[in-house]
Amino acid sequence: MKSKTFAQAIDMALAQAMADDPNIIILGEDVQMLRVNLFSRFGRDRVRNTPISESAFVGAAVTAAMAGLKPVVEVMLVDFIGVAMDAILNHAAKVNSFSGGKWQVPLVIRAACGGGYGDGGQHQQSLWGWLAHIPGIMVVVPSNPADAGGLMLTALEHAGPVIYLEHKLLADYWLDYMGIGDRKTVTFDVPPNGARGPVPDKLSPVPPGKAAVRQKGSDISLVGVGVGVHRCLQAAGSLKTKGVAAEVIDLRSVSPLDIKAICESAEKTGRVLVVDEDYREFGLSGECAAVIMEAGIRAKYARVCTNDTIPYSRDLEEKTLPNTERIISAALSLMS
């Protein structure tokens, strides 16, 4: 175990996998600079810069994967995935079904996601619920360095298409590019244990669809992914001083969803609060409620999500994204 940054752990996982499997290639905008360590070791054929042509290179990555390669295709920010949506929605996600389960698309789509640094609503979305809505796609959202590495290996080992989302408050280089820009005059609410943490010397994959209980508790279940997990842990600390024992569940993957972990916790505490940086309606938070109801569990339920387009202004953004105060207040309402 060594302490590594979130970004170093992803690089490490990719290096480990690329050394073992020559069919793994990286392609995307600026990847020769963004992944300079991998570029210098694996060369230009395996780390390919693309033009700003998402619909073409994501679409091409789908069939490259069908024909034997294992592409890790980068679209920079998940917001930009809109341009390539047809390749994902109508192709990557469908090929396995259309072929009667006979043809696989072992593709990883990697993108930065999330807000909290004042960059506006076209660069700070989460979108994991929107993407996970499509059958046939795995969507993973790590919350710490060990999982960032582990889930990248999970994604690379998975037989089908995976969307791998790294939050910009956790991946230091993204925050540096997009938020800090070499300034000492700006501050961000970066979860320290998410941005840096212990990483095993040799990474192994996280089982797909397996949540992690980050803190045990018996009064209320706080469920989230990515940065949301850290906001939950922080809220759980405050709730403890008010005599409330919160359980914190890190889903780690949005699809497949660890229904068992959600239901077990819901059954135990009888109160579920979903914290989701993605949009509130028709997404992960509603899905969590649905699986609990489908299991016939009686639990009180609430959610703290992003309800609207993310504002540019830091003040407005702070109120829009789930924050610890909103989580505490929603948790206390569920307790009363």
Binding site: G118, D119, G120, G121, Q122, H123, T309, P311, Y312, S313, D315, L316
Partner: peptide, 9 residues
């Protein structure tokens, strides 16, 4: 734009 957009929007 009331602080909703910023320089890119």
């Amino acid at each position: 734009c009331g602080g909703m957009g910023g320089h890119m929007h």
